[in-house]
């Protein structure tokens, strides 16, 4: 009993150090967010301090005034949410199909197709921007969800990630399923996809965040205030000449970051396991 207590005691400094370090690292990692919050609460000033100078006068109403200044922000969040969800579902669907073919079947041109998919990673989006824009404009899809979603529903990264993950799953599973009379599509949707949850979750979070943070495409393809997405919309809070006032900008930024933060926090475990499994076995 005594010895046990002794062990526990001797471990207290160790735990204190570990937790101290963890708290310190979290504070460093969170500092941009905390600083944004600090700026948001300091009221309109062009010379903010690191921490609010007067803690009794925190301006929490700033978050409300963002919505009053720009009632459309709720619509922008909805737009971003629909678009990011649409793109995410699309990418998961197309990547799974393409990766399935690459991982399980032999057909002429397979290697070429893989390299085409990988090659698409090397073409920056800006290079195809005008072509995409002209196509969407020609189809009269400006200011529509489909115009915002369609150009992004296939992703070379997604295909590669899913293919690598599929290859780690035992081939015997496929053979057994075939022997049992499962057809190829059922195998994909009933066996492969459920088994690939970590990879799919990684792809989903990655795609969702990327789409949520898009700026230039939504700026080009929408030209009415209602159809803007969050990242384009919130630039209206940025002040010009002389009035570099940060509080509303920061409050608006925090509001549009909230959904992605939630997603990241809730999807973190999947994300980490998905990334490591791809890294080790891929």
């Amino acid at each position: 009993m005594n010895a046990y207590a002794g062990v526990r005691q001797s471990r207290i400094p160790y735990f204190a150090m570990v937790y101290g370090l963890l708290i310190l690292t979290s504070l460093i990692l969170l500092s941009p967010l905390l600083f944004s919050l600090s700026l948001a609460l300091q009221g309109p000033t062009i010379s903010p301090s690191l921490l609010p100078p007067d803690l009794s006068k925190l301006d929490w109403g700033i978050f409300l005034s963002v919505f009053q200044d720009e009632p459309l922000i709720a619509r922008w969040i909805l737009n971003s949410f629909v678009v990011a969800t649409g793109v995410t579902l699309g990418v998961i669907f197309t990547s799974s199909l393409f990766a399935y073919a690459l991982a399980y079947f032999n057909f002429p041109g397979k290697t070429l197709l893989l390299f085409v998919a990988l090659g698409s990673l090397m073409i920056p989006f800006e290079a195809t921007l005008i072509a995409n824009y002209l196509l969407i404009a020609e189809w009269k899809w400006m200011n529509t969800y489909q115009g915002l979603i369609l150009p992004f529903v296939a992703s070379g990264f997604g295909i590669f990630l899913m293919r690598q993950y599929f290859l780690t799953l035992p081939r015997e599973l496929y053979d057994a399923a075939m022997v049992d009379g499962c057809n190829r599509f059922r195998y994909l949707w009933l066996v492969l996809v459920p088994l690939s949850r970590p990879a799919i979750a990684t792809l989903a979070v990655y795609t969702f965040l990327n789409t949520w943070n898009q700026f230039y495409w939504p700026l080009l393809i929408t030209n009415t205030n209602e159809w803007r997405t969050t990242q384009v919309g919130i630039t209206i809070f940025r002040s010009f000449e002389g009035g570099a006032v940060f509080n509303t900008q920061m409050a608006a930024t925090l509001i549009v970051m909230l959904p992605t933060l939630l997603l990241l926090i809730l999807g973190q475990r999947q994300l980490v396991s998905g990334l490591t499994s791809g890294a080790l076995k891929g």
């Binding site: 309109p44 109403g61 009053q68 709720a74």
Partner: peptide
Amino acid sequence: ATVFALAMLLVAVAALTFVSGSTTALAQ
């Protein structure tokens, strides 16, 4: 977790939409 995440997001969006409808006067 996924269902929960989606539900949270929907709640967040709904809450934000609700807040945007309110008309509290502010000292700005």
